[in-house]
Deep mutational scan, measured.
Amino acid sequence: MTYRVRIENADGEVVTIEISADELREKGLTLEELLPPNARIVEVEEVEP
């Protein structure tokens, strides 16, 4: 499974990243732990691999 994640950074700019569930598991991280300081998740969407 892959996630498309929209993130708002500290400057108010919204960027989109895609990350797979396998990648998260391998790194032992959650989506929140990948965020840079002062950023927030705006939207998470599951996409087909």
Rank of each mutant, 00 (worst) to 15 (best):
P37C: 05
I19C: 03
E18D: 07
K27H: 07
R4E: 05
D22E: 12
P49W: 11
L29Y: 06
E48Y: 15
V5I: 13
V14R: 06
P49A: 13
T2A: 09
E8L: 14
S20P: 06
P49K: 12
V15G: 03
A10D: 11
E32H: 10
P36A: 05
S20V: 03
I19Q: 00
N9Y: 15
L35R: 02
N38Q: 07
P37W: 03
L29P: 02
E13L: 12
E23P: 01
T2K: 15
E26F: 10
V42T: 03
S20Q: 07
L31N: 00
T30G: 04
V15L: 11
Y3R: 02
L35I: 14
A39N: 04
L29A: 06
E32S: 10
L31G: 00
Y3A: 03
I17N: 00
K27I: 05
L34G: 03
P37A: 10
E26W: 09
I41Q: 01
V44D: 01
L35Q: 01
I7D: 00
P49F: 12
S20K: 08
V44S: 02
E43R: 09
P37M: 08
R6D: 03
G28K: 07
E23N: 05
L24E: 00
R4A: 03
T2I: 15
E32M: 12
A39H: 10
T2C: 10
E18N: 08
E18P: 01
N9G: 10
E26I: 12
E32W: 09
V42C: 07
V15C: 14
E48S: 13
E23H: 08
E43W: 15
E46L: 15
R6F: 11
D11L: 11
T30R: 10
N9I: 13
V14N: 05
M1R: 13
E43A: 14
L29G: 04
D11E: 11
E26T: 13
I41T: 02
I41S: 02
A10G: 09
E48A: 14
D22P: 02
E23T: 09
Y3V: 15
A39G: 07
I17C: 14
E43L: 14
T2G: 10
E32A: 11
E23L: 13
P36M: 04
I19V: 09
V15W: 15
P36E: 06
T2P: 01
V44W: 11
T2H: 15
S20H: 08
V15H: 09
S20F: 05
K27T: 11
Y3L: 12
E45F: 12
L24W: 04
V42M: 11
L24S: 01
A21M: 12
E26A: 13
T16V: 15
P37S: 07
L24N: 00
E13T: 15
I7W: 14
E13C: 14
V42I: 15
E45Q: 12
P36R: 03
I17W: 10
R6N: 04
V14W: 09
R40V: 09
V42E: 02
R4P: 05
